[in-house]
């Protein structure tokens, strides 16, 4: 218990004394995860759309597949990508292993199924009439697509949060693909793992609190946006 109390006190001191290294780590986490999820949104929307409105052989199988991907351990994604990106792997020539790109790629693959499944559920819950109304009013497919996305924007927002929550706190794949290189691929979760292995529990807890704080901020933002939405649905 003493350790926990002392660590928490130290955590606050580190956070508010403006420790540059901690904020650099926070910046890397935020940057890589944000970029990963931004890149995942367009393909996720299109896949979810095709799964919801498409009518083709194997659609149900694909839906089950994406649902299964939800429960893949991050380490498995990390290991698979590691093998693919390693110099001896099929994409070895791009020299991506132990870069922010590799880390982002892992996070991209981790949040994609979450986005696909949650947007797909939103689309199914939304009226198919939304799509048809847009189409019969003369909207092109692309236009109707964006109209429907706007209709499910709260579901999309929830999906973004869930996806972001998974990748910002994920350690296995980031450690494997990024290599936890200081000032480059060291993000909050891998730094926590490192500090813990060094026995520097206070720094670990401080970083954990930063993560908590970020998560709280993002959730508060969503609450705010959704609150606005419920006044004017």
């Amino acid at each position: 218990m003493d350790v926990l109390l002392a660590s928490s006190a130290e955590a606050f001191r580190l956070l508010f004394s403006g420790d540059a290294e901690i904020w650099e780590i926070v910046g890397i986490s935020f940057r890589v995860s944000s970029l990963a999820i931004l890149c995942a949104v367009p393909p996720a929307l299109i896949i979810a759309f095709v799964l919801a409105y498409g009518n083709f052989f194997g659609r149900r199988l694909l839906i089950s597949l994406f649902n299964t991907f939800l429960s893949i351990p991050a380490v498995v994604i990390g290991l698979t990508l590691f093998i693919v990106l390693s110099r001896q792997g099929p994409l070895g020539d791009f020299k991506l292993l132990f870069t922010q790109t590799a880390m982002g790629l892992g996070q991209f693959l981790l949040c994609l199924p979450i986005l696909v499944c949650m947007v797909h559920v939103s689309l199914q819950a939304a009226d198919r009439a939304a799509w048809e109304t847009a189409r019969t009013l003369g909207a092109s497919r692309v236009r109707a697509f964006f109209t429907v996305i706007y209709e499910i924007r709260f579901g999309l927002m929830a999906a973004l949060l869930a996806g972001y929550g998974r990748i910002i706190s994920e350690v296995g794949a980031s450690m494997m693909l990024g290599g936890n290189i200081a000032h480059y691929t060291r993000n909050i979760p891998t730094a926590i793992a490192l500090e813990t292995s060094k026995g520097a529990f206070a720094e670990g807890i401080a970083l954990g609190m930063v993560l908590l704080f970020l998560a709280f901020l993002v959730n508060a933002l969503l609450q705010y946006v959704q609150g606005k939405g419920s006044i004017n649905p």
Binding site: D127, A130, T133, A134, T136, R153
Partner: peptide
């Protein structure tokens, strides 16, 4: 051709 659903679909917003 314009098709109106039995329950007309209202887009989000005003």
């Amino acid at each position: 051709v314009m098709y109106l659903h039995q329950q007309p679909y209202m887009l989000a917003g005003s």
